[in-house]
Nucleic acid binder design. Structure first.
Length: 439
RNA sequence: GGGGGCGUAGCUCAGUUUGGUUAGAGCGCCGGCCUGUCACGCCGGAGGUCGCGAGUUCGAGUCUCGUCGCUCCCGCCA
């Protein structure tokens, strides 16, 4: 990686770990400042602003293999401290960043796996990924694609489907080819699986030679059946699943069901490395709890030029110049072309519900840097641990991290975290509140 | 914050459903044999508070309750 990046004119530059907390994004790890009682540093979630400032300062190709910190709950592929291969380039477009990323992946896979990757990697827009796979990180090692059947179902006699469409939701289907022998219990178990993603049910049709065996088939007209058969390519022996709800729930449920079935039916080639770019992510999503828009990627991502007028008019319809690198259904990298104009950056902050005083206080240094003639720039960061995990064929990120944290973010070796001595706390002007033993 | 799984020898695990004498296997370890295959073979051996604590029972690895830990998932992860 270093060789590749050095050869391509990238300069390795370190950025601070003791930095300031930023409002957007994951929960920060805070570090108390002894010299400034009552004040705290935050460990960086990524060197995002620093690398942008480096671009503005004239370093046109930067990289860093850097530890990042996010205080969120752990998963099989998530540690609270993790390593990114972080890079940024000036005067570039998506294509330039992707080409560098592809070249680096090709080098890594050639040297580590001895396999040559086909370049360039396929690209899929976010909209198409969601439509066909239900997830923004589709595993393209197998088929089983989802099909939207909302238009057929909106007038059907099956009220659950028709009403879901009437309320602005969708109905999608997944044809599990040849799975007609699934037992009632197995189907019930799959229904339980999708209920985790808030799907209220899992409808199904077993396609027999002469008829459909299904709790819902009786609600469909002959015309509807014919159209379903055509669109879902239904053949005798097939088992077709349906979920109706909001688009978010339907995609989440069927997308995860698809991955489950792909694995269970042995459709996944373990030796394959399927890379895929997902592009044109939405700029914002709506946070129901906080009642405001949130950046899907981060607030410094440039909106798609063609959508710029939606920034105020239709924030949810606004697409961004963000891209993710997906490998075998796992997000292994993500980046974007950044905002390099102050007025656009301010409009984005405002769309996020931040008042000028607020963003001036938190990001004033960034805004004034943009004022000083920022070049168009963009970059990407790869999850090094996650990439290594996949390269090693391991199911857990802990398998490739020395001294990993447990799921409760503890280190069993050193017994960290631990209580601090009173003298240390005194120096830091920190008073610890004891939790009540029972509550 | 919520739901599930697991905790038995140094390691990986079986045994728990239907409670019953000395709790098993593979690998590893120790000793011996073999000795032109010191990552082979043969023989023998050491090694376990069955996570912890209560309870039920004549009797608990097995059942009940509690507790601790690990783990997977949902939420969360700009």
């Amino acid at each position: 990686m270093r060789q590749y990046l050095n050869e391509n004119g990238f300069l390795d530059i370190e950025t601070p770990f003791l930095t300031r907390s930023t409002p957007e994004g994951a929960r920060d790890y805070l570090v108390p400042s002894r010299a400034n009682p009552g004040q705290f540093y935050a460990l960086p979630q990524s060197p995002q602003l620093f690398k942008q400032l480096l671009m503005i300062a004239g370093f046109d190709r930067y990289y860093q293999i850097v530890r990042c910190f996010r205080d969120e709950d752990l998963r099989a592929d998530r540690q609270p401290e993790f390593t990114q291969i972080d890079l940024e380039m000036s005067f570039v477009t998506e294509d330039d960043v992707m080409a560098v990323a592809e070249g680096m992946m090709a080098r890594i896979f050639d040297q580590v796996q001895g396999c040559s990757l086909a370049l360039p990697f396929p690209r899929l827009t976010y909209a198409e990924a969601m439509d066909r796979f239900g997830l923004d990180k589709p595993d393209t090692r197998f088929g089983l694609e989802l099909k939207d059947v909302s238009d057929i179902m909106k007038t059907s006699g099956f009220k659950v489907f028709a009403e879901a469409v009437a309320k602005g939701g969708i109905v999608k289907a997944l044809n599990a080819k040849g799975c007609i022998d699934f037992t009632r219990k197995e189907i019930d178990d799959l229904a339980a699986l999708v209920s985790v993603y808030r799907a209220k049910g899992l409808a199904w049709i077993k396609v027999r030679e002469d008829q459909w065996q299904s709790p819902i088939a009786k609600f469909f007209s002959e015309a509807e059946k014919a159209e379903l058969t055509r669109r879902l390519e239904m053949q005798p022996g097939d088992l077709v699943f349906f979920v109706a709800d909001s688009a978010r729930i339907v995609n989440d449920a069927l997308g995860n069901l698809r991955n489950h079935l792909g694995d269970r039916l042995g459709l996944v080639d373990d030796a394959a490395f399927n890379f895929l770019w997902v592009t044109e992510f939405p700029m914002f999503e709506y946070d129901e709890t906080e009642k405001r828009y949130q950046a899907l990627h981060h607030p410094f991502t440039a909106p798609l030029e063609a959508d710029l007028d939606k920034l105020e008019a239709d924030p949810l319809g606004l697409r961004s110049r963000a891209y993710d690198l997906v490998l075998n259904g796992s997000e292994v990298g993500g980046g974007s072309i950044r905002i390099h104009q102050r007025d656009v950056q301010e409009r984005v902050f405002k769309a996020l519900g931040m008042a000028p005083e607020s963003y001036e206080e938190k990001f004033g240094f960034m805004l004034s840097a943009l004022d000083s003639g920022a070049p168009p720039h963009g970059g990407i960061a790869f999850g090094f641990d996650r990439l290594t995990m996949i390269l090693c064929g391991q199911p857990s990120i802990r398998d490739v991290i020395a001294f990993p944290k447990t799921q409760k973010a503890a280190c069993l070796l050193t017994n960290a975290p631990s209580e601090a001595a009173q003298a240390q706390l005194d120096e830091l002007s920190i008073r610890v509140r004891r939790l009540a033993p029972e509550s």
